[in-house]
Structures are given as structure tokens and as C-alpha cells.
Design a protein around this nucleic acid. Structure first.
Length: 822
RNA sequence: GCGGGUGUGGCGGAACCGGCAGACGCGUCGGACUUAGGAUCCGAUGUCCUCGGACGUAAGGGUUCGAAUCCCUUCACCCGCACCA
């Protein structure tokens, strides 16, 4: 027998696949479509890592399985190719960002082919290609025309180390998501996309995403952060100005004892100037304004404030309350000013306690009356309104509405819904991204680059320097241009777009990647979309997944496509861990897929990664486990070759004429088909699917040195290879080609026969008081009474119940009998 | 602090609807073959045991004829959010 030689087998079939492309995507099929998508990689210089091997291994197995289940499958790969590391390489090593990027793409494409992933490489999408970013720019213009892209000056998140601004979503714990460098605020004129226009729908439609993990939906819900309440204004004593505040607790409005402003609030300047302690006030304001985001947004940091010397008037009861400036009001949320209700808000309680401000109880606990003197914390639960003028005695939940009604009737406030979500800042002061297609004309102002002039190409005459502001601004050829409207002198926007824009629509381009007159064809995108199964890391729970949902909704409203949500089902795979830690160069625990391929072959690498853990859990890498997977493939190789010696041309056999051992093997085969079909198709339990295939192979060993019905032998081998094919495509194709016709990957996945699963006899467990005390074998399908009767006459049961009183007998047909005795 | 998740042999993990806990793999031990085995094949492998059994799914309690699974309390670890009024 020939030895299993993965290296030569894998090369042979990969050469054939990638030359003939049997995975070609076509829309002209009677089959049901299936869009299998994995999050596209960034072309890193390190090549593919085990995390890539895991996501793409999962996706590829599913895609191959679905093809064999007679689906018309689209399975495409691409590269999210813009981004800072390319510029880093340019600065550090003097390589051009595009050269560096394309070299990495070459490398990773080669490695993915080595893994045997069944992508239609003719559909490959690279986001830094002009034929792609032309349409990214086109989409920006679409947003602009729809009033969803605008430029404004704002205090934005700035990362010194990356030399660019960041979106809110890209600031993690006050640090840059990419380099972990601390982020600080900077006032800059920047481009934003109006994602807040879609806040409501993005929130509401989470309900439609039945196939998404709850935790992802909860994270998005929290991120959008919808809250309902009221906005109303305090008059300022001695000034014409008003202070609008936002509250979710209008029911506590009679408990207001002060008003607080964020240090950035526009009124601050006016209120403090001319105050006797102006210098002191100014110093406090400057201090707070200069706090880093980390210090400012940390709930644990001490609440500090200073009295402005000015008073405001509560519109509901004309109570005069002091106006304070604090460090705990978030300027960007609501109105940047808050009413202080110490008795019913924890922060206000702490603040008022510290500065000895008045506390008024206005919500009482209906179960146990409250006394401010005995409270050491705010009462934040609902209750009954007290000390609240005409509202006294009202249930606080109903009181919210009543107070808002009063505010609206008296013209001092309105009902208001607020979101935590802010607009998406998309300008980046970097080179390696899609240029924002805007021209600034001295006469005409901000002008879109005409559609026919797209793409705005990246120039090559730029300087890459650490810390330099937008390298594009160093390019004269890029900067200077003519105004498309008046023909006069103008210059270009030198910022590029956030790469997350590029990845917000790539899955749409996959359906029509060569289109040169539109981003994608409407019929094609509607045929394939939405994505039936999306697979990727949890780290994109908010960023990429929220942005993509936003894009889809905007493009739907623009009439470019006809669906509301891009991804029907989402699977978030776990990390790959080794020796208790995430693989990383600094820990020295990195295993590269390519070294596993070199040693054992891609099939072993794929098998191990799918077998070692269920997809959503973290995977513990084990070199011995890899060894075990390799061993299993050798066993498959061996047993299939042994069985093949007994094959006949006959395909039919009479199942009744089989020996008991043959019947048992046949049953095992059908059982395995059922299990694998359900585990892969319905449950995503690739690990248990593989274990059941291992059981079948173990079972096949019964006949390794014994004659077997030749037609059965043939059937078992054929079905085994078909079932293994999605997991280990090379070895199965090789063995298939030796003994059968065509390609195993073009076969239908085997179906199971319920009848063949059924055994004539079943083992019944006998329990006394719930403990297993014996077993008996009975014909299948006996009813409760019959099973009970057999059990009660069973020797062991009789012995153990002889001197006891039988209280109850529970009989479950084909399963167990439990005798309860005293 | 709030929200979500996880907890099962020496290890990775099974047990899908409340019905034989530990499938499958790794490791370990034993056997066969062999000049040899770190290859391959066969077998054993939760703990304790007086060999009848007893105990056992983070800990404690509850519901049930019966609980890893349902309910309550507690603990540990992981992830997300964290002054959003």
C-alpha cells in the first residue's frame, strides 16, 4: 500500500482546482443560493496566522458542505488593504505602501491556496485597487448628496502615534484601538457620516437578527444607547441666556437643587467673566478641559466642581438654584448641562455631599418611607412623588409623562430621545486610504469631484515622515487643481477615508467585482444577498458590523439594493490560545499554519483546528492534538485502501442478507450521516461532526482482516469520503479519484435512511429509586405497560424490590424503567 | 458598578427536549508485531472500595420518580460597557 503523502497529494489537487476554478460564482442556477462570507483579512507582513486558518477553515468547510447539499454557493475572498501599517513600512523601510501591500497580498493568497480554501479567486476584491476605491469615493459622494456626509469643526480624538484622528468606536478605554497610545482631544475640521440619522433603525432592526449572538446585539444596543426623557431650560438670573438640560428623570424635577455645566459649555465663559473669583474659576475650567479622555470618562474619578456665583431658576417651581461647573458632565451628550437632583441620582448625591449642597426628597419608597437623615445613598428606584407640588402622590413612572406634558404645555421643554451614538468621523490624516473626493474652490467653496473624474488617484510624489500631517498635503500634483464648477484655482481635500468605509461595503462588491459602471449590479447583489452566514471575530461586534449595517440601510434608501440587513446569521469564532495565552510574537508561542502544512499537510491543519474546540470557544493549540489528527487521516488512508481490495462493481445489496456485524456497520454509517448533516448544517458543531466520523472509522476496523459484503464496503467508503470531503478536501479527493468517478466535491452529500438507523432491539435501563441497577434488552417500540411488565418480572428488579413497598413505576418506552420503593 | 458568558477526569471537550455523566481526541498504563520503536494494531483508563457497592459535573440549597441540564443563594474566572444625566 502506498503511504499517505500529503505534500504531493495537496499540490496535485490545488494545481487542478486553481487552474480550473470549479468554485466559479454564477447566478444562473436553479439551486437555492448560499452566501458564505468570512471577514476579509488585512494584508499583514506576517502572512496568515492560526486565527485566519480558523475562520477561513470554518467558512470553507461550510461552503464545501453547502455545495454538496446542492446549494449555489458564493465564496469569495479579498483584502482590506488600506491602512496604517503600510505607511509605517514606508516610513521605516522606505518601501512604497502599495508595493508592501501587494507583496503581502501575494504571500497571503499563496498561503490560503496552500490551505485548499475553495474561493473563486477570479472574484477577488482588493480595497486599495483604484477600481475598488473609485466606488468607495462614489459612495461617499452618494452619502454627501443625500445629506449624510458633512464637514464640521469639532473636538476630535487624536492619536499622536498614528498621526491621525479616530472615530469614537476606535477609542478603547481612552486609547487608540490600533497602537494602544493614549488619545487626546484636538479641535479640527473633519468629515463625518451621519450614522445618527439611522440610530433608531439600527437599534430596532437588531430584533430582526435572529441568527446573531445575543452578546453582539447587546453590545450594539449599548453602543447606540437610546434614552428617553425631556429637554427643558432654566433661566439664568441676571442674563438673557437659558440653560437647556436633558433628563431621563423628569419625575424628579422638584428635587433640583443646583445646575451643572460641562467645562466646555459655551455659556461658561460668559458666566465667569467679571466674577470676583474669575481667575480661580478660569483655572478650574482650564484644568478640566485639559483632562485626558481616560481621566474624564472614568466613573471612579473624583467629582469636582466650582460655583459660578450665578443662579438659575427652575421653571416648574421658580426655585432659585446655584449654577456649578464640574468635571463629571459629558459635554458631547445631551445639552452639556445637567440638573442636579442629589436625592435621586448617585453622582449628584456624591457631588452634593462633598460640597454640602441641599438635598430634597421627591420620590418616596412605597414599601418603606425614606428619611434623608438616614440615607447614605441616593434613592434611584421608582416610587411615589412627594414634595412635588401638583404632582405629589403620583406614581413616579406615570409622573415622568405628566411632568413632560406640563413642560410642553407651558412651553419650557419638550419630550426628547437621545443617543449615545455620535456621528462617524471618517477623515484620516494619512496617505494610504481612499482620498475624500472633495475640492475646495476659493469662489465656489466645497465641491464634489465630478463622477466621471473618479477615482481621485493617490499621487506618488509624497513624503513619508513620522508625525507629518497628512502626507497627501506634501504632494503638489495632488493638491493643486481646477474647480469643477468655475474652472478657477482650487485645491483638494488631503485627508483620506477611514478604512472601515472600505470594509463597510466589500461584501456587496463580492457579488459583482468587475463592474466598471457601478459599485455593483442591483440584480446580482439582490440575488446573492443578504449574506447567509457571516463568520468573523468578536472584535468587530461594534465597529465593522455596525458600520456595515448603516451602509446597507443607506444604500437601500438610495435604491441600490432591496434588503434591510446585510448579514442574516453571524458566527463569532473564538481565539487561538497556546500555553494559556493568545498567540503572540512577544510571548513566543506562535504557530504558523504554514509550518503545520509543511510537516503534516493542510488537511491535518484544517482537521485539528475544527476538531479541537467548538467554533465559538477559544481553541487551545496542542502539538500533540495535531499529531492525533494526522494519525486519524493515516487511519482513513489505510482503512479505505484495505476496504477497496474487496470492492465489487455491484452497488446494490440486500440489507436483510447482511451479517449482524455488517448490519451494525451499515447502521453506524447512517447514524454518522445524520449526525454530520445536523452538526455541520444546523448546529455548527464541527468538532462533534468530526468525532462521529472518527467513530465510524473505528467501527470500520471490524472488517480490516475479515471479508465484508463488497457492495456495502463500497458504499461505506464512498459515504465516508463524501462526509469527510468538506473538512479535508485533498485526501478525500485523492482517495475518491482512485476508486470512484469524477470529483468528490461534486457529489451530493449522502442522505440517511431513518429505517436503517433503527435497531430491532433496544437496551432498557432499570433503575431503583433513580439509580441504575440493571439493564435488559427488549424489542423496540413496546408501549409503556409492556415495558413495565417486562421490568417487573426482571430477576434483578425482583431481588431488589422483594422486601420493599413499590410506590410508583415510571416507564419510558425504549429508554428506561424507574421503580420507586420504600 | 451595570450587562453578558463560562465552570464536567491528568488535558481539549461530549451529553441536542430533565432519562445510563465523561462520546471523540490527547496523555498514561498494558499487550501484539519487531533487531528496534517515539511507527502501526489490540485493550484498559473519573475517584474510593471491605468488590456488595459508595461517591462524583465550582459550593450550598430547592423542584422532580429522576438534575451537568430547571429554580434560588454563593464563589471563581473571562469578555463587553463604564460619570450618557
Amino acid at each position: 500500500m502506498e503511504k499517505y503523502n500529503p505534500a504531493s497529494i495537496e499540490k496535485k489537487w490545488q494545481d487542478k482546482w486553481f487552474a480550473e476554478n470549479p468554485f466559479r460564482v454564477t447566478e444562473d442556477s436553479d439551486k437555492k443560493k448560499f452566501y458564505c462570507l468570512e471577514m476579509l483579512p488585512y494584508p499583514s507582513g506576517e502572512g496568515i496566522h492560526t486565527g485566519h486558518a480558523r475562520v477561513y477553515g470554518l467558512g470553507d468547510t461550510l461552503a464545501r458542505f453547502k455545495r454538496m447539499k446542492n446549494y449555489n454557493v458564493i465564496h469569495v475572498q479579498g483584502f482590506d488593504a488600506f491602512g496604517l501599517p503600510a505607511e509605517g513600512a514606508a516610513i521605516k523601510r522606505g518601501i512604497r505602501p502599495d508595493d508592501w501591500t501587494y507583496a503581502n497580498i501575494e504571500k497571503m493568497t499563496r498561503q490560503m491556496k496552500l490551505m485548499g480554501f475553495s474561493y473563486d479567486w477570479d472574484q477577488k476584491v482588493i480595497t486599495c485597487n483604484p477600481d475598488y476605491y473609485r466606488w468607495t469615493q462614489w459612495l461617499f459622494e452618494l452619502f454627501y448628496k443625500r445629506g449624510l456626509a458633512y464637514k464640521k469643526e469639532a473636538a476630535v480624538n487624536w492619536c499622536d502615534s498614528c498621526g491621525t484622528v479616530l472615530a469614537n468606536e476606535q477609542v478603547i478605554d481612552g486609547k487608540c484601538w490600533r497602537c494602544d497610545h493614549e488619545v487626546h482631544k484636538k479641535n479640527l475640521a473633519q468629515w463625518f457620516l451621519k450614522i445618527t440619522d439611522y440610530a433608531d433603525e439600527l437599534l430596532a432592526d437588531l430584533d430582526k437578527l435572529k441568527g446573531w449572538p445575543d452578546r453582539v446585539k447587546i453590545m450594539q444596543e449599548n453602543w447606540i444607547g437610546r434614552s428617553e426623557g425631556a429637554e427643558f431650560s432654566f433661566n439664568v438670573e441676571g442674563h438673557d441666556d437659558k440653560i437647556p438640560v436633558y433628563t431621563t428623570r423628569p419625575d424628579t424635577i422638584f428635587g433640583v437643587t443646583y445646575v451643572v455645566l460641562a467645562a466646555e459649555h459655551p455659556l461658561v465663559e460668559k458666566l465667569i467673566s467679571g466674577q470676583p473669583n474669575e481667575a480661580e474659576l478660569r483655572q478650574f475650567v482650564d484644568e478640566v478641559r485639559n483632562l485626558s479622555d481616560v481621566e474624564k470618562t472614568n466613573a471612579d474619578s473624583e467629582k469636582k466642581g466650582i460655583f459660578t456665583g450665578v443662579y438659575a431658576v427652575n421653571p416648574i417651581n421658580n426655585k432659585r438654584v446655584p449654577i456649578w461647573i464640574t468635571n463629571y458632565v459629558v459635554y458631547e451628550f445631551g445639552t452639556g448641562a445637567v440638573m442636579g437632583v442629589p436625592a435621586h441620582d448617585e453622582r449628584d448625591w456624591m457631588f452634593a455631599t462633598k460640597y454640602d449642597l441641599e438635598k430634597i426628597l421627591v420620590i418616596d419608597n412605597p414599601k418603606r418611607p425614606l428619611d434623608l437623615n438616614e440615607m447614605d445613598n441616593a434613592y434611584t428606584e421608582p416610587g411615589i412623588m412627594v414634595n412635588s407640588g401638583p404632582f405629589t402622590g403620583t406614581d413616579s413612572v406615570k409622573g415622568k409623562r405628566a411632568v413632560i406634558d406640563w413642560l410642553e404645555k407651558n412651553g419650557v421643554g419638550t419630550r426628547k430621545i437621545n443617543y449615545r451614538l455620535r456621528d462617524w468621523l471618517i477623515s484620516r490624516q494619512r496617505y494610504w486610504g481612499a482620498p475624500i473626493p472633495i475640492i475646495y474652490c476659493d469662489k465656489c467653496g466645497e465641491v464634489l469631484v465630478p463622477e466621471e473624474d473618479l477615482p481621485v488617484l493617490l499621487p506618488t510624489d509624497v513624503e513619508f515622515k513620522q508625525g507629518a500631517l497628512s502626507p497627501l498635503s506634501t504632494s503638489k500634483s495632488f493638491n493643486d487643481c481646477k474647480c469643477p464648477k468655475c474652472g478657477g484655482h482650487a485645491h483638494r481635500e488631503t485627508d483620506t477615508m477611514d478604512t472601515f468605509i472600505c470594509s463597510s461595503w466589500y461584501y456587496l462588491r463580492y457579488t459583482d467585482p468587475h463592474n466598471d459602471h457601478a459599485p455593483f449590479d442591483r440584480d446580482k447583489v439582490n440575488y446573492w444577498s443578504p449574506v447567509d452566514q457571516y463568520i468573523g471575530g468578536i472584535e468587530h461586534a461594534i465597529l465593522h458590523l455596525l458600520y456595515s449595517r448603516f451602509f446597507t440601510k443607506v444604500l437601500r434608501d438610495a435604491g441600490l439594493l432591496d434588503f434591510d440587513e446585510p448579514f442574516t446569521n453571524l458566527l463569532c469564532q473564538g481565539m487561538v490560545i497556546k500555553d494559556g495565552a493568545k498567540m503572540s510574537k512577544s510571548k513566543g508561542n506562535v504557530v504558523s499554519p504554514e509550518e503545520i502544512i509543511d510537516k503534516y499537510g493542510a488537511d491535518t491543519a484544517r482537521l485539528f483546528i475544527l476538531f479541537a474546540a467548538p467554533p465559538e470557544r477559544d481553541l487551545d493549540w496542542s502539538d500533540q492534538g495535531v499529531e492525533g489528527s494526522f494519525r486519524f487521516l493515516n487511519r482513513v488512508w489505510r482503512i479505505v485502501n484495505i476496504y477497496s481490495e474487496q470492492f465489487s462493481d455491484a452497488v446494490d445489496y440486500d440489507s436483510n442478507s447482511l451479517t449482524d456485524e455488517e448490519k451494525s456497520l451499515r447502521r453506524a454509517m447512517h447514524r454518522t450521516i445524520k449526525k454530520v448533516t445536523e452538526d455541520v448544517g444546523d448546529r455548527f458543531m464541527f468538532n462533534t461532526a468530526i468525532s462521529s466520523l472518527m467513530e465510524l472509522v473505528n467501527e470500520m476496523h471490524t472488517f480490516q482482516d475479515k471479508p465484508i459484503n463488497p457492495a456495502l464496503a463500497r458504499e461505506v467508503v464512498s459515504n465516508l469520503l463524501k462526509m469527510l470531503a468538506p473538512f479535508v478536501p485533498h485526501i478525500t479527493e485523492e482517495l475518491w479519484s482512485k476508486f470512484f468517478e469524477g470529483s468528490v466535491h461534486q457529489q451530493m452529500f449522502p442522505t440517511f435512511d431513518e429505517v436503517a438507523l433503527v435497531e430491532d432491539e433496544v437496551e432498557i435501563v432499570l433503575q431503583i429509586n433513580g439509580k441504575v441497577r440493571g439493564r435488559m434488552t427488549l424489542p423496540r417500540g413496546l408501549d409503556r405497560a409492556a415495558v413495565e411488565k417486562f421490568a417487573m418480572t426482571h430477576q434483578r428488579v425482583k431481588e431488589l424490590t422483594a422486601d420493599k413497598k413499590i410506590v410508583k413505576v415510571i416507564a419510558v418506552p425504549d429508554k428506561l424503567v424507574n421503580v420507586v420503593v420504600k
